[in-house]
Write a protein that binds this DNA or RNA. Structure first.
Lengths: 241, 241
DNA sequence: GAGTGGTCTAGACCACCAA
DNA sequence: TGGTGGTCTAGACCACTCT
């Protein structure tokens, strides 16, 4: 037993996939679909909502329901750099520092940094833009002892603002040379704040990256929340023959 | 101006996040919420549907609307292996071979393998299980000339079924030692077939991995479509001082 | 059988956009 | 101004689960 709205959704989905309604075009208006299928308005809306939540269309008030363009940055392949390299692919590389401050870390950060529960960390939030839209929300945590080591070695106060050079250089000067990073990727739907900030239409998930950089022990951890329709992330890893 | 269903959704979301409705518990039934907010049934349903599409709850007929447990395998951190290593984290490692056959590749595969448009490839589909559920759909393509090289060197016919040893070993025997892999990760909502196969509730995206393994040139490419509520993927990369 | 969510109707009013 | 999608109602019937 199938239901009316599922039939309508399937029909529309098929026509989107076979090119009858190409990206950027509009599917028939709600009243039109009501006539065509002889159903009530909300039945049509159920079908269209479903397609929106699958990421296929975006309904726009006063305009119509437009077919989304499904060929984002995603899956762009790059025969790549010589050695181990990771690359985040977004267009504009603009980076805005939102905040830098001492903070008490939550459980996950404590675990990843292997620090005592009540120690302080420098917490940074940055937004990375792709054009005028936020494509990624970055949060970074650097433990107490690393901040101190950097300050002693380089006269840089991490909690005061953006450093003059990148963190890797500072770590090397502080005799905490980064030896490896582990990045763990997962995905989920955005919460309303994230959806709002990144202007995500319904049906667009976020790509989550949790990074830990280690020297002897962990020296830094970050989380990245990236807009699923504008992000992909590549890793190139050499294989030991 | 906010709407009724958004208010209800926000209220429920807040109570889920503050622990009033912990994971596994049920939010109030629809008729209850109708009374509490003095709205019609469909208004409540709009609110609940929204939460379902955010991945927070799963409505179950005859049961109630249960709060989802949001601490999957995801974000499990592992201080890791010595060198460059990539790990897919799922529970059961069960692997089911669905099909193996010669095929004509599509555009993306042609690009990644750097082969002529009409050449043949061996195409494999596998399902990886986590318990009784499919957690990942794997597709693999190996180009003509690599299949031939392996057959000549090792007497293994890749198109005939699962090989006795892993592909990396076969490649080494065929004098095509794998030198590097590039994996590109992205995310999107599942299509209905994928949702059905992996038993994904609404609001669960999929994690997409596109891999290319290179020796001198590309020798293999794969795509992985993983259930977002049961998958994460880790990369550990050494840093050159 | 009682309670749950799922589907559907017919009609209404609102917010937004283009011409 | 006319057409679009967004919200909401009051009521109905269905499918499913538990006891």
């Amino acid at each position: 037993m199938t239901t009316r709205w599922k039939e309508i959704a399937r029909s529309l989905r098929d026509r989107i996939e076979d090119g009858t309604y190409p990206p950027g075009s509009k599917i028939p208006a709600i009243p039109e679909l009501m006539d065509e299928w002889d159903v009530a308005r909300d039945t049509v809306r159920d079908a269209v909502s479903r397609l929106a939540n699958e990421g296929l269309v975006t309904p726009r008030r006063g305009i119509g329901t437009v077919v989304r363009d499904i060929t984002p940055v995603a899956l762009a392949y790059r025969p790549d750099r010589p050695a181990a390299v990771w690359t985040t692919q977004t267009e504009g590389g603009l980076d805005e520092l939102i905040s830098t401050e001492w903070a008490t870390p939550d459980r996950g950060v404590i675990d990843r940094l292997e620090i005592p529960p009540n120690s302080q960390v420098v917490h940074r939030v940055r937004h990375q833009y792709s054009g005028k839209q936020v494509a990624q929300i970055m949060e970074q945590w650097v433990p107490d002892h690393v901040v101190t080591a950097i300050a002693n070695a380089t006269d840089v106060d991490l909690s005061a603002g953006p450093p003059a050079t990148d963190l890797h250089s500072l770590l090397r000067h502080a005799k905490l040379p980064p030896a490896s990073t582990t990045e763990t990727l997962s995905t989920r739907m955005p919460d309303p704040d994230e959806a709002d900030l990144m202007e995500l239409p319904p049906g667009v998930p976020v790509l989550i990256t949790v990074r830990v950089t280690r020297s002897d022990g962990p020296v830094e951890t970050s989380t990245f929340v990236g807009a699923g329709d504008r992000m992909s992330q590549s890793f190139t890893v050499p294989l030991g023959g």
